[in-house]
Simulated scan of single mutants.
Amino acid sequence: MTVGEALKQIRLQAGLTQTQMAAGVVSESFYSKVERGVHSIDVQTLINILSAHHMDVVHFFSLLNYQKSETEPNFELINEISFAQNKKDIKALNEIKRKLENGGGCNLPLIYSFD
């Protein structure tokens, strides 16, 4: 997993927008490009962003070693579910459920009910 992928994952899990995650440490534009892998970020700036949200730096770096890459087919789906769950967005969860039931390109078994 890249630094940008890990940032996106923890941002979505925290229910934050890119603007909120940038936290005035960097511009939203720069932050977005880091998530997409267009720009790299120096360690001190990365730590400042994580610290601004009281995020565990050690946990963040463990993601880089142990999580699968965005190239895995379910990466985006897991992020969508995490974001909707943290926002308590039942409508979005039901839309994800509908897509999965209609063969939304994912091989995950649907074992949870969002109702």
Rank of each mutant, 00 (worst) to 15 (best):
V26R: 08
S27T: 10
S27W: 13
S27N: 00
E28H: 14
S29I: 07
S29P: 06
F30M: 05
Y31W: 07
Y31M: 04
K33A: 08
K33V: 01
K33Y: 08
E35H: 01
E35Y: 10
E35C: 11
R36M: 12
H39N: 12
I41Q: 04
V43Y: 15
V43K: 15
V43T: 14
V43E: 11
Q44E: 15
Q44C: 02
T45W: 14
T45E: 06
L46C: 04
L46P: 10
L46T: 04
I47T: 10
I47A: 02
N48P: 12
L50H: 03
L50Y: 11
S51F: 11
A52F: 09
A52N: 10
H53V: 03
H53W: 08
H53Y: 11
H53T: 03
H54W: 14
H54N: 15
M55R: 09
D56L: 00
D56W: 01
D56S: 00
D56E: 01
V57H: 01
V57Q: 00
V57R: 08
H59T: 04
H59K: 11
H59I: 06
F60I: 01
F61D: 01
S62R: 06
S62C: 00
S62A: 04
L63A: 00
L64D: 00
L64P: 00
L64N: 01
N65V: 04
N65I: 03
Y66F: 11
Y66G: 02
K68I: 06
S69P: 07
S69C: 03
E70S: 13
E70P: 07
E72H: 14
E72V: 08
E72L: 02
P73M: 04
P73K: 11
N74Y: 11
F75E: 00
F75C: 01
F75K: 04
E76L: 12
L77Q: 07
I78D: 12
I81K: 07
I81S: 03
I81V: 12
S82E: 14
F83A: 02
A84G: 11
Q85T: 14
K87C: 02
K87Q: 15
K87A: 07
K87E: 12
K88D: 10
D89A: 02
D89M: 06
D89G: 04
I90K: 15
I90W: 14
I90Q: 15
A92M: 09
N94G: 03
N94E: 13
N94Y: 12
N94A: 05
N94K: 15
N94R: 15
E95M: 10
I96E: 04
I96C: 07
K97G: 00
R98K: 14
R98Q: 13
R98G: 03
K99S: 09
L100D: 10
E101H: 09
E101F: 09
N102I: 09
G103T: 00
G103D: 01
G104L: 06
